[in-house]
């Protein structure tokens, strides 16, 4: 039987790292996790192939390869929402908190997992789609672009890294809504509402919406928005906007989890 030996207890005290490892085991044990990631990669590659094959050669070869990863991101958004919301729909949150009663630690672990899996999947998505797209272009004697160019590496890498933004927002919203569908729909709304309004609204609104929406910094960071264009922002500002949005949603997740009953 366990005793209250202080030395043994100190060495057995669970840490954030243990909680994170527990979450990794829990989430990766569910077959749906691997399936969703595979589906995300499959959709991204399939879309890239379609767009590249049917393109008449007039589009920028790099831009062609970055559309697929953006679509693949939305399956990662579904995964991120499920990672959190399944806890509530199955009642598993009770057992999770019985094992890790420090709620902040559990929220941190889940968000770290979502960030890590999205980052990793995002990088795989963007480099794979880039490779497939350029392979098709060069194979059909159309202009392609190599990775030797620093701006190309930057665009592909940033696209991959930026993939974690929407899944993190979705996971945070899932802590607030405790519902996967709700979290996904809200994330879609947050992503697309500013763009739709930018198309329909005034030029001032369009200017603000495009620049300051959570997805706004991506074009500037990848180098696709150039100085002087509507969506362009300095690197410092883009990083600030991205961190600002993420902080807001993550703070909402913590506030929700720390205050409510299970």
């Amino acid at each position: 039987m366990a005793t209250a030996d202080p030395i043994q207890t100190a060495s057995a005290r669970p840490r954030l790292r243990d909680c994170l490892e527990g979450e990794i085991v829990k989430i990766l044990s569910a077959k749906s996790t691997g399936l969703t990631i595979a589906l995300s990669i499959g959709v991204a590659v399939f879309v890239t192939v379609l767009i590249t094959v049917f393109n008449d050669g007039s589009a920028d070869p790099l831009s062609l390869s970055l559309i697929g990863p953006f679509l693949g991101t939305w399956l990662l958004v579904v995964l991120a929402s499920n990672v959190v919301a399944t806890e509530y729909s199955t009642g598993m949150i009770q057992q999770s908190l019985a094992v890790t009663p420090r709620r902040g630690r559990l929220v941190t672990s889940k968000l770290l997992f979502v960030a890590a899996i999205s980052l990793l999947s995002g990088l795989v998505l963007s480099f794979l789609c880039y490779a497939v797209g350029q392979l098709i272009l060069s194979g059909t004697d159309r202009p392609s672009i190599g990775l030797g160019d620093v701006s190309t590496i930057r665009a592909v890498t940033v696209t991959g890294v930026f993939t974690l933004v929407y899944p993190l927002i979705a996971a945070s919203l899932a802590f607030v809504t405790r519902h996967a569908t709700g979290a996904v729909l809200l994330t879609l709304l947050i992503a697309f509402f500013p763009m739709v309004m930018a198309e329909l609204g005034s030029s001032v609104w369009a200017d603000i919406a495009v620049r300051l929406a959570p997805g706004g910094p991506m074009e500037s960071l990848t180098g696709q928005a150039q100085p002087g264009t509507v969506g362009y922002m300095e690197t410092g500002t883009t990083v600030g906007v991205t961190i600002g949005w993420l902080s807001l949603f993550i703070a909402a997740a913590f506030a929700s989890q720390l205050r409510r009953d299970e």
Partner: peptide
């Protein structure tokens, strides 16, 4: 210090028994 058994439904149905205990063992060190 405390082992808890809560409602019988509060388990992720697609996990195996082994995986269900494995994540808890990992999280609780």
């Amino acid at each position: 210090t405390v082992g808890a058994m809560l409602e019988s439904g509060s388990r992720q149905p697609r996990l195996t028994a082994c995986a269900y205990l494995a994540w808890q063992a990992r999280a609780a060190r």
